[in-house]
Design a protein around this nucleic acid. Structure first.
Lengths: 251, 251
DNA sequence: ACAAAAGTGTTTGGCGTACACCCATGA
DNA sequence: TCATGGGTGTACGCCAAACACTTTTGT
């Protein structure tokens, strides 16, 4: 796969890559989708190269699909990373050695690379990680337990989370992260997990319902300990409207 | 200049450029710093290429300085643009013809380019546009009167302004855009210009003073028509503090 | 019956909105 | 003296923070 790309590198944008940060939510935990190369101890964000005939936004979708099998998600660009030392020679040469590519041919890979970061929020249960490339695996990792990542991928992940925290104040979040029917406490847990702080139940309820994007269903969650919580769903139409117009106008 | 770069293109990151959107404020108008090539009718954002041995953030400073003479401003990355059709072949070939470079040698320039956008807010009066390259000029243009720009530079400019509008709700703005001493009406005009809408005088005063970043000076503006307005300055320490912590916490 | 989690208020203070009035200055 | 722009103040309403009580459910 990677070998194909290096050998046909004229079909790819030189010195530029894409890395994706995919967030999911499950068991009240924020999850991140990571790639693992079985014979390597290190994990990485799902990333890849930009076909020379694709818009970068399209390439991001292509890249994500190739590395994880994930389809049809809306990827949002959040930053571009281009420190000189972000990809060290060592790393590239190790790959060339593993792939049995000689140094001259592999120069394309060991050149200085800049990477564009994209992120997305997805429904954990609908996503079945399944990379096209069978030599690696993609799996969900609790963001509190993310191991050491290659290159500057940890920095990219942190920046994505920072962006997500800011976006939380500008637009509603949850449509893609929660199942169709959910409870307010679940939604609150999502917010608390992203923000990494506790919120007041009662104030949260009022604030979130005031936005006007929730529909209270005539149904309660069953088979749960304690009092059964109400189920809600998003009013997609109003949700999208708020997405467009934003939340806090400020000025 | 550009010819040097093309002929020494191994010293530059291939297929990747930087474009800068520099905002200033003068005569109650939002200004944008643009480059003009005398024998061309078109204007452009000050942009350029990335030295292979510089971080992209550093390269942005280098690029801006080369094209405009502007020094020591804090450039903020806001987006990366990479549509396939953003730089058409036509445009690149016209440049090669003008510079008398043959097509083979100029392939570096006509390849597909992705560009990283940076923006900055600067003190209009302290900036003297003076490009290193004497074959072009840099000048301030009222943002309401920006002419047609090359390639997708208009789109980049619009995106920078959108970003600025959002940032206005997250952090104070004005330190770099106004002279040391200024009046509240002046600051309000700045906000109104950026947001492109009218604000209430009295409410603006309360809101902006409540932030706690202004110092009321024991001085009034002289030689003005009508009642002399009070002068204010920014309390740099508190200003920087708010810059770090942000304004609307939201959740 | 008890603990744990969920639903439903209430009070308080601050902030945003929408106003009205007075003051200073140049024409 | 009058129009214009600047400074100051107030009343209303909403929203956010802090907090208490009731309801439901499994054990």
């Amino acid at each position: 796969m990677l070998k194909d790309i290096i050998e046909n590198n004229q079909n790819y944008q030189p010195g530029l890559s894409i890395d994706c940060v995919i967030f999911g939510f499950h068991d009240n935990q924020l999850k991140v989708l990571l790639n693992k190369i079985p014979d390597s101890l290190q994990c990485s964000l799902p990333g890849g190269f930009i076909p020379i005939d694709q818009d970068i936004d399209t390439a991001a979708v292509t890249v994500l699909n190739t590395r994880t099998g994930v389809e049809g998600v809306f990827l949002r660009q959040f930053a571009t990373f281009g420190k000189i030392k972000r990809n060290d020679q060592h790393f590239g040469k190790a790959i060339l050695e593993r792939l049995n590519i000689d140094e001259e041919k592999g120069k394309w890979l060991t050149q200085r690379f800049v990477t564009i970061g994209y992120y997305a929020l997805v429904d954990f249960l609908k996503i079945i990680p399944n990379p096209v490339n069978k030599y690696e695996v993609a799996e969900w990792i609790d963001h509190k337990e993310v191991p050491e990542l290659i290159l500057d991928h940890k920095e990219i992940l942190d920046k994505a989370l920072d962006t997500l925290r800011i976006e939380l104040n500008l637009m509603p979040v949850g449509y893609n992260l929660l199942p169709e029917k959910f409870t307010i406490p679940e939604l609150q847990k999502l917010y608390e997990t992203i923000l990494d702080k506790k919120l007041d139940r009662r104030n949260f309820l009022r604030k979130i319902t005031n936005i006007g994007i929730l529909t209270k269903l005539d149904e309660k969650k069953s088979n749960v300990a304690h009092k059964a919580p109400n189920l809600y769903s998003f009013d997609k139409e109003k949700y999208d409207e708020v997405l467009k117009n934003g939340l806090n106008q400020g000025w």
